[in-house]
């Protein structure tokens, strides 16, 4: 918005400075509020259990130890197995990559059809898909569990990929549709006159245009799928669980001594990929968030 700094008289300048100070104080306090949990997670993960019991929550670690990280990665118990997060982290990776790519590709094609190759009923189909984005997934959990069983995919990673693709299509279609709908219809007409067909136009003209929305969609889908817990906990079994489920199992396992430092290290490990994406491509991340909520 525009500069609201009016030319001020001398007398009001002090008030202005005081207001600015208050503003920065508030902003700083809020920054602390948002950073505090991350800070606590990191410091706790670097402390020994002994230091955690005796020290303060927000104190820096006296003796930095990576023991908790090692345990979290390869030794912590998720129920009866004690292999740490590592296998589950890789489960999440090999689950997220194909699910993200497939749902993005399908979304791109769907968005291309709905925005540029309208046919009677296309808008109805789009509306149906859009409503699908908003259902609470609890309403499909039971039949999906049976369906995966029928397909022989129950408790498998391909089964989870399938679920994420199915319920991701709504959003990816929405993203691409809203992006392509701003491209003038004349572009397709020109290409048709030039002799190009449906796929040629998509491949040569629309896909090269789509880099920003592909990034937004990939980030959105990756964050959604990586952070998913509901599908993971409902449709996986021991050995195929994604990292969020394993993290929850580590934290809530009731056997043995409560190792808070390991919990925190595990939580950070589970959060690292999405945090990394956020730090590297924050603007695209925000665009996905706002595009996912403010349609049109």
């Amino acid at each position: 918005m525009t500069d609201l700094g009016f030319p001020q008289s001398q007398g009001r300048n002090w008030g202005h400075v005081a207001l600015r100070c208050l503003l920065f104080l508030l902003l700083g306090l809020f920054a602390l509020f948002y950073l505090m949990p991350l800070f606590v997670m990191v410091t706790t993960s670097l402390k020994s259990l002994e230091e955690i019991r005796t020290g303060s929550l927000v104190a820096f670690p006296r003796d930095v130890t990576f023991e908790a990280w090692r345990t979290a990665w390869s030794g912590a118990c998720t129920g009866i197995q004690c292999e740490g997060l590592r296998p589950y982290f890789w489960n999440s990776v090999i689950l997220a990559i194909p699910a993200v790519l497939i749902s993005t590709l399908i979304g791109a094609l769907n968005g291309y059809v709905i925005s540029q190759w309208k046919f009677r009923g296309a808008n109805l189909i789009f509306s149906l898909m859009l409503f699908g984005c908003f259902i609470p997934f609890q309403v499909v959990l039971l039949p999906m569990a049976r369906m995966l069983g029928l397909m022989g995919l129950a408790g498998t990673i391909p089964g989870l990929i399938f679920v994420h693709v199915i319920y991701g299509i709504g959003f990816t279609t929405l993203f691409f549709r809203n992006y392509y709908v701003t491209i003038p219809a004349e572009l397709v007409k020109a290409a048709k006159v030039d002799g190009a067909g449906f796929f040629r136009i998509f491949w040569s003209i629309f896909l090269p245009l789509s880099l920003p929305i592909i990034v937004v969609t990939v980030i959105w889908q990756f964050t959604q799928i990586w952070n998913d817990f509901l599908f993971g906990v409902s449709f996986s079994q021991a050995g195929t669980q994604p990292v969020t489920v394993a993290l929850n199992n580590i934290v809530n396992s009731t056997t043995g001594v409560k190792e808070y430092n390991v919990d925190m290290a595990a939580a950070i490990i589970a959060a690292l990929p999405t945090l990394f994406v956020y730090v590297v491509a924050g603007n695209y991340f925000i665009r996905g968030l706002t595009a996912g909520s403010v349609k049109g």
Binding site: P184, E186, L187, K189, A190, A191, K192, V193, D194, G195, A196, S204, I205, P208, L209
Partner: peptide
């Protein structure tokens, strides 16, 4: 594509990611 026509559009409808040369030779 089989009507032996060429068309110039109001918005020009140039392919945004292609160079001018590619735009002209795409057909």
């Amino acid at each position: 594509k089989d009507r032996d026509i060429a068309m110039v559009f109001q918005s020009y409808a140039l392919y945004p990611t292609m160079s001018v040369a590619k735009n002209i030779t795409f057909g």
